[in-house]
């Protein structure tokens, strides 16, 4: 290499560092460092404002949270929430995407309408749905259900009912988030080659066969992505709980993040909260790895 070429490479490298350093600095200070801190702190006894000296505690924070009824309930609730929301929301998003993808007039309006709640802040959505779930025969949902069942429905207080509170939060979340998944699936639907459907029609496949043999396999990656994102979001659940139920009644809607935030701020137990967030991160990591494995499996088949 000539010396002039060498200089260009050096100048390029310096500029590259200059280009990348603000972002890299930000990521190291505000993502990487806190993440490492989170792991380290989870092995200590750190409590803000505590007179006790900082000590290494081994796994005892983890032992404690895994024998804590509230935290176990939180893990259970997050899983249950994911089990309700992920299949329902994905199926609904797919149905809406298929409907909006029909070559009919006015589809843009419906698409916008279904996407609209995505731009609503979750905190606002939560407050609005408190009214939808209002107790007594005056409550909107109670009223609707009573009309549909011709009066057989017994009005209830959804958000203060241990059985109904979590499904109520799930419904709220689906309403807010389904438009996002719909748009992703819609883009994938529109990316499917028309020739595939034409070939299927020539072979005499009906609508349902086309859906099962062409649409679903072609959407596979998009569906895996949507399922992954929705599952991770399900484990991040916080805003709706904070506003709608505060984790109650009797831990029926508490979540891992809600418990972590409460430990850190309710009782200043930073180490305990850190242990909870490490558990949370492990769950997210496992879900991501699982998704990678499933997606890679598919590439092998191709």
């Amino acid at each position: 290499m000539t010396s002039a070429g060498h200089q260009t490479v050096n100048r390029d490298a310096r500029l590259a560092w200059l280009f990348a350093s603000p972002a890299l600095l930000g990521l190291s200070c505000f993502v990487l460092l806190p993440f490492v801190l989170s792991v380290i702190l989870s092995f200590t006894n750190l409590r803000l404002g505590s007179p006790l000296p900082l000590e290494f505690m081994g796994f005892s924070q983890y032992q404690r949270i895994f024998s804590d009824q509230a935290f176990l309930a939180a893990l259970r609730n997050n899983s249950l929430f994911a089990l309700i929301v992920v299949p329902l929301q994905t199926a609904l998003a797919l149905l809406l995407a298929l409907l909006v993808n029909q070559p009919l007039r006015g589809m843009v309006i419906f698409r916008s309408l279904f996407f609209m709640p995505v731009v609503f802040p979750l905190s606002l959505v939560a407050v609005v749905w408190i009214i939808v779930f209002a107790p007594g025969p005056q409550g909107l949902l109670n009223q609707v259900l009573e009309t549909i069942t011709l009066g057989a429905w017994q009005a209830r207080d959804f958000l203060h009912d241990p059985v109904w509170a979590l499904p109520a939060i799930s419904l709220t979340s689906i309403w807010q988030g389904v438009g996002f998944q719909m748009v992703i699936l819609l883009a994938a639907l529109q990316g499917i080659a028309h020739e595939l459907y034409e070939a299927a029609r020539v072979d005499g496949a009906n609508r349902w066969q086309q859906f099962v043999c062409i649409t679903l396999p072609q959407l596979r990656n998009a569906i895996i992505f949507v399922v992954l994102v929705t599952t991770i979001l399900a484990f991040r659940l916080f805003d709706q709980v904070q506003i709608m139920t505060q984790g109650g009644p009797n831990y029926a809607t508490t979540t891992v993040m809600y418990e972590a935030v409460n430990s850190a701020f309710g009782s200043q137990q930073v180490a305990r909260a850190a242990a909870m967030t490490v558990v949370f991160f492990t769950v997210v990591l496992l879900i991501t790895l699982l998704q990678r494995a499933v997606a890679r499996h598919e590439r092998v088949i191709e």
Binding site: V31, P34, A264, T277, F280
Partner: peptide
């Protein structure tokens, strides 16, 4: 470094909120 950045993508705010709070304090 690119690999590190891609790995950082899966760390949501919630997972680092508590130590980040401690840091800014």
């Amino acid at each position: 470094l690119l690999l590190v950045v891609i790995a950082l993508m899966i760390i949501p705010l919630e997972a680092i909120a508590v130590p980040l709070f401690y840091e800014v304090t």
